[in-house]
Design a protein around this nucleic acid. Structure first.
Lengths: 236, 236
DNA sequence: TACAATAATTGATAAATGTCAAGCAGTCAA
DNA sequence: TTGACTGCTTGACATTTATCAATTATTGTA
C-alpha cells in the first residue's frame, strides 16, 4: 500500500535540518520514491539485524528505539515528531542495530535508502547535512554512555527530571510524557527501582503523582543532580 | 614547536580510510597545516570541554579516551595506531566530550580543525569519507551502549575476551595489551571486580596469569558469552 | 458502570557491584 | 640488592540494583 506524501507532510519533512539545505529538484526526487503510512500502536516498524532499506521519519505519534540480547530488552531512545531515525544504517547500507516500534498511532514517512545514497552521491550539500546530523547523533550517544557509566541510576533519574523541566520551559510542574516502565528501561533500571528512586528524590524536592511531576525545590534537585553540558545539553 | 610530517608519517595518515579518497592537492594542503609531536606517557592531550582545535591521529604508541563527572572517571576507549580521534567535535566545531591521554610514548599528528572543515567544504569525496567514518563511529557507540545495558559485567568481560581472541587470530593464548584497571574501567567495573570476574570465568575455560590469557575451552566460553554481530562485530 | 488487562507500587529477599583495608607481586631507580 | 612505588588480588563488608510475589492503581472496553 504505497501512499504518496501530502504537501503538508512533504513540507514537514523538508523542514528537518537534514533536508532543508537540499535543492528542490533533489528533494522532490527523494519524495517521489518515499511513501507514508499510518501505523497503530505497538507495531514493530523495524527489527534489528535486518537490512536498512528505508530511512524513517516520524511525522506524528511517537516511536521507541530498543535493542535486545539473550532475551533481555532495553529502550535506547524515544522519538517525537518530527525526527528521523536509523540514518547511519541507511547510509552505510548496514543492518539495523536497533529495533523500532510505535508507541501510539503514528504516521511514518519511509524514504528508500537507495534514493538517500543516490542523492547523497549527487548533492554535496546533502552530504554536509548528513555529516552534521551524524556528528550530532554520535555526540548524543557518547553523552549517553557517560551518563550510564559515570552516574548511579538515582543520579540519572535526577538529571532526567532536570532536563524534562527545562524542556517544559522551566515550569515547576510538568508531565512525564513517557510510561514509567519505558523510562526505567531508558535509564537502565527496573520499573520497581524507578518507583523507589522517585521516592528517594523526595528530600530533594521532587514529587511525582502518576504522570504529573512537581519540582518543589529546583536548587536542591540541581545540587544533587549536578547536570553538566557535556552530558546533559543536547546542543553542545 | 611545530614539526612538519615526514614522508613516511604523511603516507601513514594518507592510508587511513578517512583520507585515502582525498585528491593529492587537498591532502597536501591538509598536511601543510598539520604538525606532529612525540609525547611522553601519561600526558593529557586534550581535555573535555575545550574547543576542538585539532583532529588527532595516533601514529605510534597508544592513547586512552576517558571522561569525568563529579570526581569520577571512566575509560571510553583505547586507541592503537593508526587511528584518528575526535572527528565529530572537529567537524561540528564543538567542545570535546572526552579527554585523551597518552598511555605510552606516542607520536601524534595534529590537523587543524579549520583546515579539516575547509577541505570538507571544498571536496565532496572527503565529505563522503567523513560520513562513512562518522556512521561507523556512531554505530560503534550504539553497540557499546547495548553491551553496557544488556549485559552484566561478567558477560562483558567474557565477550571482551572472545573478541580479543579473534583479534589474536583465534589463538588459545594471547596477551591482554591493556592494564587491568583500565580494562575494568572500560568494561564499567572496578579493578577488584575484574579480578573476581576473571576467576568466575575459570569454569568456562579462561585462565589469566598477569597479562597472559589462555582459553582452554573456546566452546564453553562462547556458550557463556553469546557474542552477537550487532554488538560485538566492529564491521557490521 | 463493571470487568479484564495492564501498569505501578510495595515489601521481602537475593544477586551484583562497589568500598575499604590489607597483603602481595612486579618494576624501577638509587 | 634494596626500598619505594604501583598495580593487582583477596577478604570482609556496604551499597546498589534486581527479582519475586503480592497488592493497588489505572486503562481500555464491553
Amino acid at each position: 500500500m504505497t501512499i504518496r506524501l501530502s504537501d503538508d507532510e512533504s513540507a514537514e519533512v523538508r523542514h528537518l535540518e537534514l533536508f532543508s539545505g537540499l535543492d528542490d529538484a533533489h528533494f522532490a526526487e527523494l519524495m517521489l520514491g518515499a511513501y507514508v503510512q499510518t501505523f497503530p500502536p505497538q507495531i514493530e516498524l523495524i527489527h534489528e539485524g535486518e537490512p536498512a532499506d528505508f530511512l524513517h521519519v516520524v511525522t506524528s505519534g511517537s516511536v521507541e528505539l530498543f535493542a535486545s540480547w539473550n532475551g533481555r530488552e532495553t529502550t535506547m531512545a524515544t522519538l517525537a515528531p518530527v525526527s528521523t531515525f536509523i540514518l547511519a544504517a541507511t547510509i552505510r547500507d548496514a543492518p539495523y542495530l536497533m529495533s523500532a516500534r510505535t508507541l501510539e498511532k503514528s504516521r511514518i514517512v519511509l524514504v528508500p535508502s537507495r534514493d538517500m545514497r543516490a542523492i547523497f552521491d549527487l548533492d554535496p550539500t546533502f552530504a554536509v547535512a548528513v555529516v552534521s546530523e551524524l556528528a550530532r547523533a554520535y555526540r548524543q550517544v557518547v553523552k549517553n554512555t557517560k551518563n550510564l557509566k559515570l552516574r548511579t541510576s538515582l543520579e540519572r533519574l535526577a538529571n532526567y527530571l532536570v532536563h524534562r523541566q527545562e524542556c517544559a520551559g522551566g515550569r515547576n510542574e510538568f508531565g512525564l510524557d513517557i510510561e514509567k516502565r519505558r523510562l526505567a528501561s531508558y535509564l537502565g533500571m527496573t520499573p520497581e527501582n524507578l518507583s523507589r528512586a522517585i521516592r528517594q528524590l523526595r528530600p530533594y524536592g521532587v514529587r511525582v503523582n502518576g504522570n504529573h511531576v512537581t519540582i518543589t525545590d529546583k536548587a536542591d534537585l540541581l545540587a544533587f543532580a549536578k547536570p553538566e553540558s557535556l552530558i546533559d545539553d543536547p546542543n553542545s
